[in-house]
Design a binder for these strands. Structure first.
Lengths: 133, 133
DNA sequence: CCTAAAAGGACTTTGATAGTCTCTTTATAG
DNA sequence: CTATAAAGAGACTATCAAAGTCCTTTTAGG
């Protein structure tokens, strides 16, 4: 039921980025230092961000990371799922048909509801809400 | 963000028990077979249930397990937390003061909300709702 | 006192988490 | 066109929790 450290780090990093001037390219080394995360680990996280289109990356001198969209268009849900995979309170509910007990299991619908509620809550928060200016 | 197998097994077992005649003492071996969980593993789970006062156990011949209270007085939240520990979406929010970033961390209140919502949802479900009769 | 059950503790296996390290690719500046 | 500065990618390692097993002890009945 818990976010992993990776997820936590991911949020720290992206929130930091959202708090920077939006046209400023930030160095991974700076981000890592600012949010207190091992740089090599954060590198992996930002690679995932880059692949899922949350940040844009630039290589070489003067390179770094920048938000791919304005902060009000990036939700917390998107950030979390980019690194943690789909949010699901129980594996029986990751996808329809995953669980052979789901036809008769009375708990199944509960997990569906939990999943929906949590996703909804996170989808309503954007990086704009989280960036502290 | 996911329930462990232990949590899942725990629910299966207790829901089965809630579906039995309430004055009937069930054998662990029967429960385990019925819900398709390794008996030795389920034993550990029911020990925790017993300690948290969800079931009553009887040793020796004719012994076994029985709900400690009527099913409508046992919530899903209680069951889950008995074996999984407190529900918390992020370790920063298990207890006040746990996280040294919480004074300035803008995400902290979000996790509090998620936690409350999930707990509320699970607290509203009782074993009576889940037992299929 | 023998047998049927749960309780308790020690142990093992497996897999995910949380990283690290090294090499490659891409881009810029001189 | 070469040196340098960044991110990308892959392989590797260490640690820890999850998932489960096994064995011994306690409790209760017949």
């Amino acid at each position: 039921m818990e976010l992993t450290r990776k997820g936590d780090y991911a949020i720290r990093g992206i929130v930091y980025l959202a708090g920077q001037p939006l046209d400023k390219i930030s160095l991974l080394s700076n981000i890592a230092a600012a949010v207190d995360v091992p740089q090599t680990f954060l590198a992996k996280i930002f690679q995932q961000f880059s692949k899922s289109g949350i940040v844009k990356s630039y290589r070489g001198t003067g390179g770094g990371f920048i938000l791919a969209r304005p902060p009000e268009q990036i939700t917390l849900l998107e950030v979390v799922e980019a690194v943690e995979g789909p949010i699901t309170p129980n594996r029986c509910v990751v996808a329809p048909g995953e669980c052979e007990r789901d036809s008769f299991c009375t708990v199944h619908p509960i997990w569906e509801r939990v999943k929906q509620q949590v996703r909804q809550l996170l989808a309503d928060i954007t990086l704009k809400d989280l960036a502290n200016n």
